[in-house]
Design a protein around this nucleic acid. Structure first.
Lengths: 143, 143
DNA sequence: AATATGTTGACAAATTTAGTAGAGTTTCTT
DNA sequence: AAGAAACTCTACTAAATTTGTCAACATATT
């Protein structure tokens, strides 16, 4: 019932890049965050395809945030890495709990699960990375 | 990032017992909820030791709720089966993120994780099983 | 051209979750 | 007292997911 280690790492990596305020290569990120190089590469790829991080190839390559920390939420990062947050196991709109003791009737717990999940997502969206940065850095804006 | 199947089953089982309003044996519960007999026995044991369900041995034995549905919350059931809910992986009070890029400084995400987890738990505590019962049953009280 | 970097998909190990087995104990009924 | 119908307990196995690794490749800079 926790976020996965991978998501935890992803948060660290984004945090690390937000603090650095400059391009870092995978090796530096890996050392800074104590995530193995290989695994951080994998996570970085997800962050890149999720549009949170930009990558640059070649000698002076590396990774940097694709937008300002203020515009990156905890939800962006976690959702990118492990998909949308949901308490209930049965996603999608028209779920009917054929197995519930009510038999074929909409699962009576679905609503509460969805409500709570929605709140969690809302909270995670409201929490942006500028909130964990030292004041000066938080003020700055990426181009 | 979902509740586990086991917790899901546990909720169904409690719901089933709440609807039944009478003692049921494991076989009946298993059939009603579509959880295998063996697995439901395992879950029932947890529910018993968690004080949510009472068990009775012998020929007329079986299981019944240990208290009225109104006094059993979603959180009671889920916590009994899979432990206290927490988003963050690092439980316990004095956690320090030695691995974070801040190095040895309290993890800056800890607070938000705990806040959100707290809200989830609060919501799950507020949701009691009488809320998913037909009106008449919900009104009744167990001795 | 050489080197430093990121990209990709497949693979493997570790951990957690899900489910099973069997021998034992208690209680009720007759 | 016997027997059956229940629950109890510990351990084990199987499946799924998470975590982490590898190797060959593509791209950019100097």
């Amino acid at each position: 019932m926790h976020i996965t280690l991978e998501a935890d790492y992803a948060v660290r990596i984004v945090y690390c890049l937000a603090l650095a305020e400059k391009r870092m290569d995978a090796k530096a990120i890996s050392e800074e965050t104590s995530v193995t190089l290989r695994f951080s590469l994998k996570i970085l790829r997800k962050l890149v395809s999720g549009g949170i991080v930009r990558s640059f190839k070649g000698t002076q390559g590396g990774y940097e945030l694709a937008r300002s920390p203020k515009e990156i939420s905890l939800n962006d990062v976690i959702e990118t890495v492990e998909g949308p947050f949901s308490l209930s196991r049965c996603l999608g709109g028209e779920y009917v709990c054929t197995k519930s003791s009510a038999g074929g009737v909409p699962c009576p717990f679905r609503r509460i699960y969805d409500e709570i999940s929605g709140e969690v997502v809302q909270r995670m969206k409201a929490f942006t990375f500028d909130q964990v940065l030292p004041r000066e850095s938080a003020a700055k804006k990426l181009p």
